[in-house]
Structure formats: C-alpha cells, structure tokens
Design a protein around this nucleic acid. Sequence first.
DNA 1: CAGTATCCGAGAGGATACTG
DNA 2: CAGTATCCTCTCGGATACTG
Lengths: 137, 137
Amino acid sequence: MDTQQTPADADAGEDFAFDVLAQRCPSRPVLEHITGRWGSLVLIALREKPARFNELRRRVGGVSEKMLAQGLHALERDGFVAREVHSTIPPRVEYSLTPLGSQTAEMLWELIMHLEYAMPHVLRSQQSYDAAASAEA
Amino acid sequence: MDTQQTPADADAGEDFAFDVLAQRCPSRPVLEHITGRWGSLVLIALREKPARFNELRRRVGGVSEKMLAQGLHALERDGFVAREVHSTIPPRVEYSLTPLGSQTAEMLWELIMHLEYAMPHVLRSQQSYDAAASAEA
DNA sequence: CAGTATCCGAGAGGATACTG
DNA sequence: CAGTATCCTCTCGGATACTG
C-alpha cells in the first residue's frame, strides 16, 4: 500500500463513516465481498496457509463450486487473494493471501474470535428474546 | 459478558476456526447478522449515538423500512442492540448499542477504516484485473 | 412516528453436467 | 484437478399500502 495518508489520520476517519453510510461510495461492494457469507470464510480459511481449489472447498464447509469460484474471483479482483497457476497435468492452482488480504483476514479473525467468545451471551439473549416474544403472543 | 474464558485464551482460538468453517456452529447466522449488508451499517450508524427509527433510516443511506426493521430485530435478538420504548403520542423508540454491540461495532469500524484506507489499492487492483481479463478475451 | 403486511422482481446460491 | 455453463429454486430486498 502506498497511499498518501498515514494511519495517524484515524481521526479524519469520521468522515469516512458518512461515506460508507451514504452508500455513494465504492467501498460498499468490497465490504460485502469480505464480510459476505463466503468471502469472510474463504479469507479465514486461507489465513493459515495457501490452498488449492478443492482443498479450500473442503476447508470451508458447505460451499458449492460455483460460489467458491465466484468468491475467489471477486477477492482476487479486489487484490485480497493471489492466484498462482502451475500449468502441469493435472493442473495445479494455488490460492494465497496477498499482504492486504492477510491484514484483512487478521481483522476478520479478531471479529470472529470476539463473536465466538460472546456466543454464550448471544444465545442467552436470543432465548430471553424468544421467550418474551412467545409470551406476548 | 460474564463468560468463563478470559481474552488471554486467544490461542485456544484456533479450535474455533474449524468450527466456523465447518458450518455446524450456531455462530454463522450471527456473523451474518453483523457483517451482512445492513447489519454492519446499522451498528456503525449507532456507534456515534443512539437513534430513533427514522433518524437511523436517514443515517444509513439506501435502507428500506423493511430491511431496517428486520435487521434491528435480528440485532436486538442477538443482544447487540437495545430497544427502548417510550409509550407516548407520538410513539418514541430509541435504539442504542449494548456493551456487546458497542465492542462489536468498534471492531467493525476498524475493519471499515482499514478497508477505506486500502481502497485506492483495491481500485488499482480491480483495474489491472479487468484490463488483463479484457485483453485475453 | 414507528412500524407491519403484501406483492413482486432480481439475484444469491445449490445441483448437475460438461471442458481442458 | 480446476474450473465453466446451465438450470432452477428460494430468499433478499425494494415499493407500496395500511395500522396504532
């Protein structure tokens, strides 16, 4: 990354909030690629180590070929994932995280860890919510 | 949060990776609530300060009543958002972040800031990808 | 104001078959 | 193995109208 700003600009970041929320910014689709149903899981799966297509497919539970290919294309296009082709027989294609992808995966990982940690709390909240909902019905 | 584990348990977290990827865990839907198209934006929008329904709707660009209501319900059920009803006329309902929601919003915020910061890089990556794609076509 | 109910189109996403 | 192409379904999500 060789942008002009420095991370110390974080305070100027409040401006970005408006941008993201105002949906006229180009970052929304990208955000959805990395947070979407499969995008996040692919990044997490690649976090450990690079993988080939079917290996990746096994690593991420429940993803179809179509969705995996689609997700990988999007992430490659956005520059989060690198694709390396070895033109052998049988073909061998390795997917790995770029530095940017690696940073992003790390942040996603923290988010997921936070979430897993909070899950007991969440489940209890869901139960009381459902109990209250069925009580008034 | 009053779970048993401490944040220092982070190393045990690698076990969670498998859980999330294996899609047999209850955290997937919750992850989708907070990372989904509107969920993340609602959390970000509430990060600054609590808001009422229509105020929130104005703050998040492009969200429909239906999706906002749906997202708020999910987030409330999961315990990220608190809903406070003032039975007046006209009715007044305030949405705010719970402590858990606040932590989560903060992590999302960091992710989005990271993304905004990386956007120039991403856009360039997209351009070269598209150029290469149309070149071979 | 704060929603719910309904209808409808578009796209997400899965299963299968096929190609290099 | 590493995908693409096709079909089909089902949910997402927007617009509109209505209620308390």
